[in-house]
């Protein structure tokens, strides 16, 4: 039998999916064990038990000075920035994408501009943003917006253009105005794309968020990681990394579920 035709059984599939996770956990434990055996005060690879204790401390115990639990405070600050930036980017790119996709005049005006804009490396603009918007929340949200909007706009406008021309003509023969075509034909078919678009952009959004927080901030997940880096607090860093990964995973899963619930027609043919 050819390799491409061999499929794993159900238990085998579960085992295979778990294998990389188990492998990395085992590799870490073993390396940590070796290093700690050589030097019990090694900070590079803290024992899994140490990380676990640190995690519990971070999630439950307040800061000694203020009594606030810093991890939750960081999470709240970071998520606010992330959702703010992604939300604004989504609204902007949806509007621009619809305009570019539907109106030839807007396409001529904007599509080349957006194409060029999406080539600008957003992190190179970060100093400018700090200078213009200060070191507060605005510059961080704006970095996320600038970072992901051009790419989202390009994709969404392409999706609008991909709507079969027959549908647009058909809507016109039913008497639909440009506005009705935008609202009732294009928009509903673009929204599922917007959600998958957001899911794709979230990776970059996190990148820009953590970069901005690392450079200048006083609260936030990225800020904390870069702060404790000075003390080689690997246990804290690893806890935060796992926590960020978990948050990203949950957001992705929520968006996927939302898309499936809200757009049943997408799967009608399956």
């Amino acid at each position: 039998m050819r390799l491409i035709n061999r499929t794993p059984s159900r238990p085998m599939a579960v085992a295979l999916a778990a294998l990389p996770f188990v492998a990395i956990a085992v590799a870490y434990s073993v390396s940590s064990e070796i290093r700690l055996a050589a030097n019990p005060s090694d900070k590079l690879l803290p024992a899994p038990s140490t990380i676990w204790e640190t995690a519990i401390r971070l999630f439950t115990q307040g800061d000694r000075r203020t009594g606030e639990i810093l991890l939750w405070k960081d999470t709240l600050a970071s998520l606010t920035r992330l959702f703010g930036g992604v939300g604004i980017a989504a609204a902007l790119s949806l509007t621009l994408g619809m305009l570019i996709g539907l109106l030839p005049y807007a396409r001529r005006l904007l599509s080349d501009f957006v194409a060029v804009l999406s080539m600008v490396p957003p992190l190179a603009l970060l100093p400018i943003l700090f200078i213009v918007f200060g070191l507060g929340e605005t510059s961080k949200v704006v970095l996320i917006v600038i970072g992901i909007t051009p790419f989202m706009t390009r994709d969404l406008s392409q999706r609008v253009l991909d709507i079969p021309h027959e549908q647009i003509v058909k809507a016109q023969t039913l008497g639909a105005s440009s506005l009705v075509i935008a609202l009732r034909v294009a928009l509903p078919q673009i929204l599922p794309r917007l959600i998958s678009n957001i899911r794709l952009s979230l990776g970059s959004a996190w990148l820009f968020l953590i970069a901005a927080e690392a450079v200048a901030s006083d609260v936030g997940l990225g800020y904390r990681i870069f702060l404790v880096r000075r003390y080689l607090a690997m246990d804290v860093i690893l806890t935060y990394v796992v926590w960020i990964t978990f948050l990203a995973f949950v957001i992705d899963w929520a968006l996927k579920t939302l898309s499936r619930r809200a757009f049943p027609w997408m799967e009608a043919g399956l």
């Binding site: 008497g175 078919q189 027609w265």
Partner: peptide, 21 residues
């Protein structure tokens, strides 16, 4: 100068809106 309600059309494909029941 553009399609209007005087003219109905049915194409070979894509004539109905997939997102509407």
């Amino acid at each position: 100068v553009e399609p209007n309600r005087e003219r109905g059309v049915v194409f070979q494909r894509y004539s109905v809106f997939p997102h509407l029941t």
